[in-house]
Structures are given as C-alpha cells and as structure tokens.
Design a protein around this nucleic acid. Structure first.
Length: 201
DNA sequence: CGACCGATCGTCT
DNA sequence: GACGATCGGTCGA
C-alpha cells in the first residue's frame, strides 16, 4: 500500500497518467469511515487545446481554477445539478490537465457504499459511471481542491497491475459538444470489467 | 436491450 | 436564461 507521490501526477503526459491510474485504489476516509475501490475507467482532459475540457482556450473561472494548480489536487464539480464528478489534476502549475474517474470496482466498505448510493439491490451499477463513483465514495464538490498526497482522499498502489492486453482505449463519453475533439482516443477502460460505464468497444 | 425523458442547480453568458 | 464530462426509471421491441 503505497500512496502515489506528487511526481506521479506532475508528469506532462496526461494520457500516460490516465492509463497508469487504472488498477490503482481510490481511497476516502471521512469521519473515520474508509471506503476504497480500484480504478477501472478514466478519461483524460488535455488542457487549453482540448475542446471538451473546462479549460479550453485558457478558460479560467472560480470553478475550474484548481485545474491550473500543480498536479496532485482534486477537482470536483457539479454536473446536471445532481452529480459530483471527481477529477485528478495533473501536470505542472498553469497547465490545466485533468483526469475524470468514470468507474471503479469496490474493494472495501461495500455496505457503506450501498448506504450512500441508496441502492436497493447490490450490483455493478454501484460504482459505475462518474456520478456513482463520487456518490459511493462520499465525494462532493466541497472536496474540490484537496491535496491527494495529504488529505483524506488518496490514491494508492497496492501492487496490482492490469496487463496491457486488458486495457482498451476509446473516445470519451458525453462530449459531443467538443466537435472533432470528441473523437480523440482519451478514454481508458479495463476490458470486460463489469463496472465500466457506457459502451465497450 | 435501446431510446427516451425528467430531475435539478451551479455556473457562465 | 441556457445548459451540462449523468442517472435511473419507463416503455416498447
């Protein structure tokens, strides 16, 4: 159980970092309650030139300001007025790269997750899709701007690693508004993992 | 299984 | 005033 160091997040290739996040454990510990889950689906958002990114064209607002911080912080924002989407900020200060965690496979605290999501039946939708990930792990927009190395949201390496063959790359979900950038191969998924959202391919 | 649709509100124009 | 980096329920095939 090794916490990922700042250097992991501060590399300049957001696609590489996104791929490397697959298999790592996302852990939250709030009010002495720990839940953890293995990351199985991520999407990279590649800064000012990426039309799907909140930072497209250098757009800088109160909401996305944390994207311009150095790598290793959380960026959580509200989507559709309902869902709290969890992102990891990467690269150096002033380079607004981020990675959206879209799906995880529960490893610890499953009953807690079931309580948080208020799901009646326990199935693969528990932590499938970015909205459910945050809900299950207890992450809200007020957790935006936390330091992943020092805070109660952390990402750790327990030695597990997916094989190269198990990882697939696809286009991102729900970013049709980005025009041609919607076709970029920036989504990384674990093949055949039941928690992965959207279409397989 | 796929298509459709309503929920719900902070953020940006 | 419009619109989401979504989800879950419903309806029909």
């Amino acid at each position: 159980m090794k916490k990922l160091p700042l250097s992991f997040y501060q590399r300049n290739n957001v696609l590489e970092i996104a791929k490397d996040l697959l298999g790592k454990l996302l852990v939250t510990k709030f009010d002495d309650i720990t839940t953890s889950a293995r990351i199985v689906e991520v999407e990279a958002y590649a800064g000012v030139n990426d039309k799907a990114s909140h930072a497209v064209g250098g757009r800088r607002t109160e909401r996305n300001e944390i994207m311009y911080a150095k790598g290793g912080f959380t960026y959580v924002y509200l989507c559709y007025g309902i869902h709290h989407l969890f992102n990891v900020v990467t690269n150096k200060k002033e380079i607004p790269h981020a990675i959206l965690i879209r799906a995880v496979e529960p490893t610890e605290g499953i009953s807690i997750m079931q309580d948080r999501t208020r799901k009646k039946v326990l199935d693969n939708t528990l932590t499938r899709g970015p909205g459910n990930v945050s809900k299950a792990l207890g992450i809200f927009t007020y957790h935006s701007g936390l330091d992943l190395v020092r805070s109660d949201i952390r990402i750790v390496d327990d030695g597990f690693q997916y094989k190269k063959k198990e990882i697939a790359v696809t286009t991102r979900i729900g970013v049709d508004y980005a025009g041609p950038d919607a076709l970029l191969p920036y989504r990384f998924i674990v093949r055949d993992n039941p928690y992965v959202s959207g279409k397989r391919r």
